[in-house]
Each structure stands twice: as structure tokens, then as C-alpha cells.
């Protein structure tokens, strides 16, 4: 019995959905960023799965790029979150609408 690509992609899709649900449901910037990480990972899983089923390395290479982008994004986003927190003593995303203007 071998592992099929559809199973891997299904897993990736559901993981992506879980991340999206967290992103929409949470108001805390911290959890929103965490949910985004989950979605990144889901995308990575899909890439790696396809790569494995084709027997080629390209998908894994893309995973590394996704990894780099996620790492850079999370560092900047967390720094922004901290600045926002320093300013308004909260990390509630709905409060961030007062940033305008």
C-alpha cells in the first residue's frame, strides 16, 4: 500500500482551511500571524507532495523559498506587532483601524 498524492493534497487543503479559519476568527495579531504560518506550511506541504510524486527536487526547492519568505515575513510582522503594542498597549487587530490618517 503506497501513499497517494491526493491524500497529501487533501491534508494540505484541510491544513490551509484550518489556518484560514484561525485568521478570520481571531482578533489577536499574534494568533493571526500564527494562522498565517499554518497556511504557509500547508502550501509547503502541497509543494513537497507534488515534488515527491514526480520524483523531482523542484518542489522541495520552492519549499525552501517559502520557508525563507515565511521567516522574513514573520520577523517583520512581529516587529510591527510589537511597535503597535508599544503604541496602543493592545494587539487587537480591530483597533488597528485607528492607524489610518
Amino acid at each position: 500500500m503506497t501513499l497517494g498524492l491526493p491524500e497529501v493534497l487533501t491534508f494540505a487543503s484541510i491544513l490551509f482551511g484550518v489556518g484560514a479559519a484561525g485568521l478570520l476568527a481571531r482578533r489577536s495579531l499574534l494568533f493571526m500571524l500564527a494562522s498565517i504560518e499554518v497556511m504557509f506550511v500547508a502550501g509547503g506541504v502541497a509543494f513537497v507532495g507534488v515534488s515527491a510524486s514526480l520524483g523531482q527536487a523542484d518542489g522541495q526547492v520552492v519549499f525552501f523559498f517559502v520557508l525563507a519568505a515565511a521567516a522574513a515575513q514573520v520577523s517583520v510582522a512581529l516587529a510591527l506587532m510589537l511597535r503597535f503594542h508599544a503604541q496602543s498597549r493592545t494587539i487587537d487587530a480591530d483597533r488597528a483601524s485607528s492607524l489610518r490618517g
Binding site: 485568521l23 482578533r27 487587530a93 480591530d94 483601524s97 492607524l99
Partner: peptide
């Protein structure tokens, strides 16, 4: 464009 991040996200989704 009212700065409601979660509204943006919902619309995006």
C-alpha cells in the same frame, strides 16, 4: 478602505 484588517481578509477570502 476603512482599515478593518479582518474585513479585508474576509473579502479577500
Amino acid at each position: 478602505q476603512r482599515g478593518r484588517v479582518r474585513v479585508y481578509l474576509a473579502v479577500l477570502l
